[in-house]
């Protein structure tokens, strides 16, 4: 049973088509990844799903409730974790959580229990009385997650919760999300980090230019990209010549240049590698590093769009 059904969603800002006919569905209980490069339309899609923006076309059903018609009922099922912490800085962690709990319809009996419960989930029990303005960036992010969880939503929507934080806080957040599996909650996890999505998610939708270009379980998607491997060669002196010669080698699907690196999508890295090496040396290039990646979502994305996820 799908807890979220998105059909032919469209949203334009002026002439810019931020979401352009996106369709996907999220099943009850899974961690669903929405992966896409900057500007793909992920945040816009999520804003549409939680009723902050109105779609130009398409349908959004949350557990069967149409967000456009039964907004309050649909919103009741959702918790959000915005990209930037959305909290009252001069209030304590507890006061914030009490506020967000009340706003989301918890009564005073449920409130205390829920507050302590979510503080435990994000590991901030000992900072319950502390003012948010004194919290570190990572702690604010964690409390931001707690605020999204406070009313025990069926669907938690997380928009790039790990962008711009230190590795330790990042790991803490990833573990927290992973542990949400024990709470019977469905999670939509947006990111442009392939590793995070691969680590956390059961199913993934890949978004580009406002459209979902692929959707499936992690293994299905990896399977789709599995005929290909990604060969990364770091060069000291990159030239267009090298790239275009390598592009013509038999078995090379696509090539991309990224910084000083040449990325080659190929079905047979072992065979290509010596030929590529030869081409580079023959063109006066100097190789400083070579990597062969097993197929991952990054290589699938490259294959589908001809672009890198991050640049």
């Amino acid at each position: 049973m799908a807890i979220l059904e998105v059909k032919d969603l469209k949203k334009a800002f002026g002439s810019r088509q931020a979401v352009n006919g996106a369709s996907f569905s999220v099943r009850e209980g899974e961690i669903f990844g929405l992966l896409g490069p900057n500007g793909a339309g992920k945040s816009t899609t999520l804003s549409l799903v939680c009723g902050l923006l109105k779609a130009n076309a398409g349908k959004i059903l949350i557990d069967g409730w149409d967000i456009a018609k039964d907004g309050v009922k649909a919103k009741n099922l959702i918790g959000i974790v915005p990209q930037e912490p959305a909290l009252y800085p001069m209030l304590s962690a507890k006061a914030n959580l009490r506020f967000w709990g009340t706003i989301n319809g918890l009564n005073s009996d449920e409130l205390e229990k829920a507050v302590n419960d979510v503080l435990k989930v994000v590991g901030l029990e000992d900072r319950a009385e502390g003012k948010i303005s004194k919290f570190s960036g990572g702690m604010k992010r964690r409390l931001n997650i707690a605020a999204g969880l406070i009313h025990n939503p069926r669907l938690l929507i997380m928009d790039e919760p790990t962008v711009g934080i230190d590795p330790q806080s990042r790991n803490h957040i990833l573990e927290t999300v992973k542990n949400l599996r024990n709470r019977d909650i469905t999670v939509i996890y947006t990111s442009h980090y392939v590793e995070e999505v691969e680590y956390l998610c059961d199913r993934v939708a890949i978004m580009d230019n406002g459209q979902i270009i692929s959707e499936g379980t992690l293994s299905e998607l990896l399977e789709q990209g599995s005929e290909y491997q990604e060969l990364t060669i770091k060069l000291n002196s990159f030239s267009e010549n090298i790239q275009s010669s390598i592009q013509t080698l038999p078995g090379v699907e696509k090539t991309f240049s990224l910084d000083e690196k040449l990325k080659i999508i190929t079905s047979n890295a072992e065979k290509i590698l010596p030929m590529a090496f030869e081409t580079i040396v023959g063109n006066g290039g100097i190789v400083s590093e070579i990597k062969i990646h097993k197929p991952n979502l990054e290589s699938l994305f490259l294959k589908l769009t001809g672009k890198a996820l991050r640049n």
Binding site: I78, I80, P82, L87, Y88, N104, G105, A147
Partner: peptide
Amino acid sequence: TWNRILTSS
């Protein structure tokens, strides 16, 4: 917080 209030029920 404005958006978060608007997305509440």
